[in-house]
């Protein structure tokens, strides 16, 4: 970062479109994102797309705290959008970066976040090709909000849809669940807990691309972000008009994540993840998909957690450790720490 920004804060001038704006854009964004599409400084990025179906998505990021174990808002802004594209089987290519900054936000922190975005973009093999920055008065936003949109291309006859789960399919997750949510909980000062857990925040597009080498193996796929694995399973069960039965004893949950859940009375199935996907796999290909996943860093703890049944339609149930059954419903709102 240019030394002239040391100790400096974002002012309204940085969003005015004048010299301060263009300096900031050049020094912080263009230098870091560093690609031919962005450096032209046109009002739009121009590129050719490879043959195939286009996938387009957008997501906004407002996480607090901005920096947490295993990630930060910048990393999250890339993984979130890349993973949303990847879940369709698309190869993510280009991303945009829209920022809303609160007046007084330290420029050094901004630089740190932008560098983290670029590092993650490199990991995902995508380019950040255009952007926008607005500054709002102190108190009108909480430090920094990021929006990223992304395009990718679905090659060949890949057909992954949430309404495509078939009776007999198996449900696979690529790793431990609930780590991101448990990490954010321990950063909340008023809960005053600490544990050795990091967010699972990671890009999943390479993992997904590898599984596409088995055509037709994956019927449905979602990343289990807000609302956790339980919410994604409900969406798939409803869209596909099937029933999903999950085995509690097969759920991969880290011990400290379980500890956080026990203390605060939370259910790990509803905790957010930022690098965990749920995929519905044709039973013929289950072993192969698992093997492919387990050979990657993102999927080394991949496992089967459940199966698709015919009815009752739209319902997700859990076989408890005890052989009892309970319905895994959608949450009405957020999960709160409870005492009862």
């Amino acid at each position: 970062m240019n030394k002239k920004y040391n100790g400096k804060k974002i002012t309204m001038a940085h969003g005015s479109g004048g010299k301060s704006s263009s300096d900031l854009i050049k020094d912080i964004f263009v230098d870091t994102f560093n690609n031919d599409y962005l450096s032209t400084m046109e009002d739009q990025a121009r590129f050719d797309m490879p043959k195939g179906q286009l996938a387009l998505t957008t997501d906004s990021f407002v996480v607090s705290p901005l920096f947490f174990k295993g990630g930060d808002i910048g990393k999250l802004a890339i993984t979130g959008t890349v993973n949303d594209l990847a879940m369709s089987g698309a190869k993510p290519l280009y991303l945009t970066c829209g920022l809303i900054l609160e007046e007084g936000f330290p420029i050094e922190t901004l630089d740190q976040i932008i560098k983290s975005m670029q590092k993650t973009a490199e990991e995902a093999d995508v380019k950040i090709v255009c952007g926008d920055t607005k500054v709002v008065e102190k108190g009108s936003a909480d430090q920094i909000f990021i929006n990223t949109a992304g395009v990718g291309v679905i090659e060949g006859d890949v057909s992954i849809h949430s309404n495509n789960a078939q009776v007999g399919d198996k449900i696979i997750v690529n790793g431990f669940i609930g780590d991101h949510g448990a990490t954010i909980m321990q950063h909340r000062a008023e809960l005053a807990i600490s544990a050795d857990i990091s967010s699972d925040c990671q890009v999943l597009n390479h993992l997904v691309q590898k599984t596409l080498n088995l055509p037709g193996a994956i019927h449905a796929m979602r990343d289990a972000t807000r609302g956790g694995v339980a919410t994604v399973l409900n969406e798939i069960a409803q869209d596909s008009k099937v029933s999903i039965l999950v085995q509690e004893d097969s759920l991969p949950i880290r011990i400290p994540t379980r500890g956080v859940c026990e203390i605060l009375g939370l259910d790990p199935l509803y905790l957010a993840n930022e690098g965990t996907l749920v995929c519905v796999v044709d039973k013929e290909y289950v072993d192969q998909v698992l093997k492919i996943m387990q050979q990657t860093k993102e999927g080394e703890n991949a496992c089967i957690i459940g199966e698709v049944f015919d009815s009752p339609k739209g319902v997700v149930a859990l076989n408890t450790l005890f052989g009892g059954t309970k319905i895994i419903d959608k949450l009405v709102g957020d999960q709160f720490p409870r005492i009862c």
Binding site: L318, T320, L321, F322, G323, G324, T325, K326
Partner: peptide
């Protein structure tokens, strides 16, 4: 009771 499904067992 609900978490472990004891009511059905």
């Amino acid at each position: 009771i609900f978490r472990y499904g004891l009511n059905q067992l």
